[in-house]
Design a protein around this nucleic acid. Structure first.
Lengths: 349, 349
DNA sequence: CATAAAATGCTCATAATGAGTATAAAGAGG
DNA sequence: CCTCTTTATACTCATTATGAGCATTTTATG
């Protein structure tokens, strides 16, 4: 029992790290691997994500992310994903990033064993235009949805979402239900994640918030995975298949963080755009409102854009200059991004 | 051929995303999965990483990261890893983070097929003290090594590493060897990654630099993977088994970025320490020297530490106050970290 | 021609940074 | 004990970066 690691090291170039708790290391175990993709676009000032809606065996409609088995043909995981999406949607993925590899064994209830990989490698992709792309028919349908459909509590653009009141009440009850020590821990986690008391709202903590809601049994998936009864309509936000909402939460949080130090928003913008459009997109992603003048100052002094020389018939008042992304910026600044230190403090209702 | 995705979506809850380029989706393919761990500690002002040194079949010593097959027993990947390391090294992992999942099929030459997983999930772990931990015997041996052993060009604490001159020459030649358009691209990549010309040295681009050296054939692994001849001593830095040096580069880059916005350095510090010790550790990780007075100001005003009340017999001059990490800081600040905007510019020799 | 709606331009107080200068508190050597 | 060296700490100062607004400029509308 104790000598197993040594033995393994002896035997296998690269050393050995058996994760099993029970004994001698086995040879590399064959496990099924899944891929899933969070494909994001922005339109009409909403952050969109490509979802597949299909009927589950029992007739209930289920929303899911594009996902499927990995096949060992492509040179790299990312190339495989990129290739597939580009072929299916006939559009270039401007940006593809590996998100996270999920391997929880207790979060995969609710799917057929066949569609239940031991491991899921999730990717985040950004696209400029939304095309229906993935053909859909029969019981399945590809739809671009605002991601706030799944996380209504994440959209603070019109002030604090009223539904947070209910969530906080439920969370408080959940915390109080635990024994003393654990209750304290839960309270702190809630405070940090939801910006209560001393803490302030941090738009990046999307996953932390979702996980709390899951643990507290406030989202439908929690009840489903535990085999408990819960009307889907009673859960906070719209539910998704297996652990897809968790994957989406990871993606949203990651993207919200990334725009601050990498010029990734531009992957979602058309070749030419106005500063207002850019701001609206950033606000859509981050879920918070920004100070207009300061936002422009930031973008311009950072050298993130350059004028195209054209102006556009405004959506309302004075026509705006059109700008384009300056790719050279990557050369000049170490971390070109939009540090949006929150903006005009929307009245905390 | 074209309808396969639709069919898959119809059939499988969760939708389907076959990565194969060739035809109908298969059922989840069984592939072997590996785990590897970058276990980091800091001592004597050096960043250390736990490596396994063993003799390869042909008698040559090979250095590797602790790695081995994943076994599907633990609830989550991270718990499995944490469990294993804690049992083997009998020490708590303060911090464990999933790094990246590697799936390149052309980077795994040089290892026996058995130790050659289709996918490797790599983790980064931080520990406070170094214990030999993983028992080693026979042809294998666990050793803590400074990570600059593998990346000598990353250590700028004593100024620009002289060996960079040679690297730059080789890179320039590699760039020039390509046709016009590709040559331009390579030059830009080199400039950005190595901070030439307009760009400045960015300590986080560890992976980008390693990848360039690999592509340019300057590191031993490149020749090895291509089946070319190269004396290991001629490569830049010490080589590692399979793609472990790439995994390590990913870890170093990630950690260097993380200390700026998360208080992770403290996972490497003893319970009580002086501000100088903290600074030395940060410098060791980031590979750059910092302005002392400003560093203290930052740490203190950020509320990252509090005094223990004790002072320590100095390592040289005036005794220093001992401080400890203030865990509550996570509650107060959204991104408590050490934005080390480089420091005292060491003469660019 | 007055108003409304955006897009731009500028100002200003404050906070955060980058670089130093000045002092204080040990140990080492004579 | 006195001086020198070394490290720890305190402060200062100019420059930038940020957060909040006010003021103007351009169009479209009624």
């Amino acid at each position: 029992m104790s000598g197993s690691a040594v033995a393994a090291i002896r035997r296998r170039p690269g050393g050995s790290l058996p994760v099993s708790g029970s004994g001698a290391p086995l040879s590399p175990r064959a496990l099924s691997i899944g891929l899933s993709a969070v494909i994001v676009a922005a339109s009409e000032h909403e952050p969109r994500v490509l979802t597949i809606r299909h009927s589950s065996p029992d007739g209930e409609p289920v929303e899911a992310l594009p996902a499927g088995p990995l096949e060992a043909e492509h040179r790299t995981l990312e190339l495989g994903l990129r290739n597939w999406v580009e072929r299916q949607t006939s559009q270039r993925l401007g940006y593809v990033e590996q998100l996270y590899t999920f391997g929880d064994r207790d979060r995969l209830v609710g799917a057929s064993p066949e569609a239940n990989p031991a491991l899921t490698v999730a990717y985040l992709a950004l696209v400029r235009e939304m095309r229906a792309g993935i053909a859909a028919g029969g019981s399945a349908e590809a739809v671009w949805q605002s991601w706030y459909r799944y996380f209504p509590w994440e959209d603070w653009r019109d002030g604090r979402p009223p539904m947070l009141a209910g969530i906080e009440t439920s969370l408080a009850r959940w915390a109080a239900a635990a024994p003393e020590a654990e209750a304290r821990l839960r309270e702190v986690r809630i405070q940090v994640a939801f910006g209560l008391q001393a803490a302030s709202w941090n738009e990046e903590l999307v996953l932390e918030r979702y996980e709390l809601l899951y643990e507290a049994g406030i989202v439908f998936e929690a009840a489903r995975d535990r085999g408990l009864a819960m009307d889907e309509a009673d859960g906070a936000g719209v539910a998704m298949a297996v652990d897809h909402r968790r994957i989406l939460a990871t993606a949203v949080g990651r993207l919200r963080g990334k725009i601050k130090y990498r010029p990734v928003v531009f992957e979602l913008m058309p070749p030419a755009f106005t500063l207002s459009q850019l701001q609206k997109t950033v606000e859509a992603l981050s879920g918070v409102r920004l100070h207009k003048q300061n936002f422009r100052r930031l973008v311009e002094q950072q050298g993130l854009v350059e004028e195209t020389g054209e102006i556009t018939a405004a959506t309302g008042g004075r026509p705006a200059r059109l700008v384009r992304f300056r790719r050279e910026v990557a050369l000049e600044r170490p971390a070109p991004g939009l540090r949006l230190r929150a903006g005009r403090r929307v009245t905390i209702s």
